[in-house]
Structures are given as C-alpha cells and as structure tokens.
C-alpha cells in the first residue's frame, strides 16, 4: 500500500470517530456529515485533500507535543 493510501485510510479511520448528528462546515465549500467527508477523502477531491490536511496538521501537533507546552499559549491580552 502506498503512503497516500495509508494516509487516506488513517484519516478515514479518524473521521469515523466523529459522532453521528454532528456536521462540519467548511466555509463556502459547504456542510458535510461524517459520511460525506469520508467519501470526499476516498475520492481524493479538493474537499478530501483539505480534510486530510487538517487531520495531518493535528496529528503533527500532537506528535510534537506542542499542544501540551505552556509556550503554545499566546501572550496575555
């Protein structure tokens, strides 16, 4: 299995944890259910690619530990 397919499967597995009854608004691209997003990821279209990008962005932040660092907080207002 190539890397692109592995990433798709990872993202789909993570999207599958989205609760039913919760939708995702992606700006003017529209609103999507969990099922819709999974289909777009499988298709590899623009929405699918964006959702993959969002997911990978989050996973990288988790992996780097950045989310748990106090320095990740912005300065006091």
């Amino acid at each position: 299995m190539n890397l692109e397919q592995e990433i798709k499967e990872l993202v789909i597995a993570r999207l599958d944890t989205l609760p039913d009854g919760v939708g995702v608004s992606v700006g003017s691209d529209g609103d999507y259910s969990k099922k819709d997003l999974i289909q777009h990821v499988e298709l590899g279209d623009e929405i699918g690619k964006k959702i993959i990008e969002v997911e990978m962005h989050f996973l990288r932040a988790l992996k780097s530990g950045a989310l748990y660092e106090s320095s990740y907080l912005s300065n006091e207002a």
């Binding site: 919760v22 995702v24 608004s25 700006g27 969002v54």
Partner: peptide, 8 residues
C-alpha cells in the same frame, strides 16, 4: 478555511 462543527 474557517471550519466549525455543528449539531444537526
């Protein structure tokens, strides 16, 4: 993109 979740 500005993305948000909503309750159907």
């Amino acid at each position: 993109k500005f993305i948000f979740l909503f309750d159907e």
